[in-house]
Amino acid sequence: MALIRQTSPHTLGQNKTSHIMRLVLIALVPALAAQTWFFGWGIIINVIWCSVIALGAEAWILALRKRPLSFYLRDNSALVTAWLLAMALPAAAPWWLSLIGVGFAIIFGKQLYGGMGNNPFNPAMVGYVLLLISFPQEMTSWVAPLGSGISAPGIGDSFSMIFAGSAVDGWTMATPLDILRENKSLTMNELWQNSPQLSGMTGLGWFWTNLAFLAGGLYLLKEKAISWHAPAGMLLALAVLSLLFWNGTGSESHGSPIFHLFSGATMMGAFFIVTDPVSGATSNKGRLLFGLGVGTLTYVIRAWGGYPDGVAFATLLMNMAAPAIDYWTQPRTYGHRKPKRGMAKTK
C-alpha cells in the first residue's frame, strides 16, 4: 500500500484566515448597530451594497488572473474591506460613490498588487482617501444623528438618497470634527450649546459609535485576532498629543483628549484599521511604533491639517513606513546578545 509522504508538522492548528476575517466582521456588528441607530438605515444598505461591489470586483479580477474563485472569495477579506469602507462613508452616500470607492479599493488597492497579503496599503483607506479627495462634498454630507432635531431618514428615504439621487441636504449636518475645525470665534462652551449634534460627550451618535467600535476591538483582543500593540500605540499618541495641545475651552482649542479619543474614526481606526496585519508593521514592537505614528499623524492632521479627520491619511503614510519599521524592530533572537537592526548588508 502507498503511504502518504508529507512534511512535518503533521498536525495543524484550527485557526484559519477566513476565521480571523469572520471574527473581524462579527466585531464590527456592535458599531454597525450603533451607526444604524443614530444615522439611519442608510448604513446597512451601504454595507450590503459595498459587499456586493467588493465580491464582484474581487471575483472579476480573480477570473482575469485565472485564480480559483471560491477558494479566494471564501477568505472573507473582501467583505472586511467592504464593511470598513461602508462604515466610514456617510450614511447617505450615493450608490456611485460606494461603487468607485470599493471598486478602487479592491481592484487598485488590493488585487493589482497581487491580491490578499500583497497590498502595501490598507485597501479600505485607499478607497476612502480617493473619495475624500475627489468628492469632498459628498464625503462630508453626514446624515444628522438621532436626537439632533432632524429626524433620521427611514428605509425608504435612505434608499432614495442612495440609489435615486434625491437630495440629502435636508437630512445632513456637520460632524463634530467639522464643527471644531470651522469654529473660529466661539468658545467651547458656546459651541457645545449651539450645536445640537455636539451634545452627549463627544458628539451625538459619535460617542456611542466609537464606544461600539471599542467594544468590538476588545472582543478581537480577547479572541487573539489582533494584538494590543498597534491600538495602544495609536490611542496613546492621540491622547498624549491632545492633552499637550489642549488649550482649554477657548475658540482656538483643538479639543479635549476625550473628544479626540471618542470622535470621528478614532476607535474604528485603532482597532480595525491600524491592526490590519498586511499593510502594517509585523513585529510587536513595530506595531507599537506603527500605532504611535498613526496616532501622531492623525492628531496633526486633525489639529493643523486641511481635513477634518486624519485617520485614513495617517494610516496610508504609516503604511509606507511599515517595511522600514519592520527592519528596525526585529526582536532579539534566542542565543543572540543583540537584536539585528536595519537592512541586511548586501555583499
Partner: peptide
C-alpha cells in the same frame, strides 16, 4: 488523524508565527 494539509493561502502577516516561535524569530 493526519489529514493532508489544506492549500496554502497568502500570508497576511498576522504574526501568529512570531508569537509561537520559541526563539523569537520572525
Amino acid at each position: 488523524e493526519f489529514p493532508p494539509p489544506p492549500p496554502e493561502q497568502a500570508c497576511i502577516r498576522c504574526g501568529m508565527c512570531a508569537d509561537a516561535c520559541p526563539l523569537s524569530l520572525l
